[in-house]
Amino acid sequence: MKVTPEHNERIAKMTFASVYPHYIVKVEKKGRTKDELNQVIEWLTGFDNNKINELIEEKANFETFFNKANLNPNADLIKGVICGYRIEEIENTLTKQVRYLDKLVDELAKGKKMEKILRTG
């Protein structure tokens, strides 16, 4: 699918707080934990549990969320299709970063080993 400017704008304005509970439900339904989810988020963004909670409380949108992030240098190893979009083909940096996060959550929910998700093994 082709990413439109409207799609990019909608993603930028979406709050992390509105999506995070869905991430938790998705991974817990598949037998994974909130701690594992937070570990994945920390790997991608550098945010520890306190910072994640702070961003949720301030209702940071994804634009603010990723502007504050220290993106993992191996994030570009995250490839594949998520939500109908091939990550490698997304041109908008913010949309690509949000899809990185979606892909990691998806891999966690699918039961991948943590070292594979975190691109360490």
Rank of each mutant, 00 (worst) to 15 (best):
D35S: 13
I52Q: 06
G46L: 10
D48R: 06
E57N: 10
E115D: 07
G111S: 04
K13H: 15
P21Q: 14
E88M: 05
K116R: 05
N53L: 12
N72Y: 10
N72M: 09
T64V: 13
A69E: 02
F66I: 05
N72Q: 13
E54Q: 15
I82L: 03
E9G: 06
K116S: 07
Y23N: 01
T45W: 06
M1H: 09
K113V: 02
E28G: 00
V19C: 14
D48Q: 09
I41D: 01
T33N: 02
K34T: 06
D35L: 08
R119S: 01
K113C: 00
K113Y: 06
E42H: 12
S18W: 12
D48G: 13
L101P: 00
K59N: 14
A60Q: 03
H7E: 13
G31V: 01
K68D: 12
A12C: 12
T95P: 01
W43G: 07
T4Q: 09
N74P: 08
T15S: 15
D48E: 10
T4S: 14
L71F: 10
T33K: 08
V98H: 03
I117E: 00
D102Y: 11
K29A: 09
I90R: 05
G31S: 03
N49C: 04
K113E: 09
Y85D: 06
L101D: 00
K34M: 07
R10M: 11
G121W: 05
N8S: 15
K110P: 00
L55V: 04
L44Y: 11
I117L: 02
K79T: 13
V81I: 13
K51G: 07
L118G: 03
H22Y: 15
K68M: 14
Y23C: 01
K103D: 04
A12W: 11
G121Y: 05
K79V: 08
L118C: 04
L71A: 04
K2V: 11
K13M: 14
E91M: 08
W43A: 09
N50C: 04
T120F: 04
E6N: 13
A12Q: 10
V81H: 12
E9C: 07
H7R: 12
K96L: 02
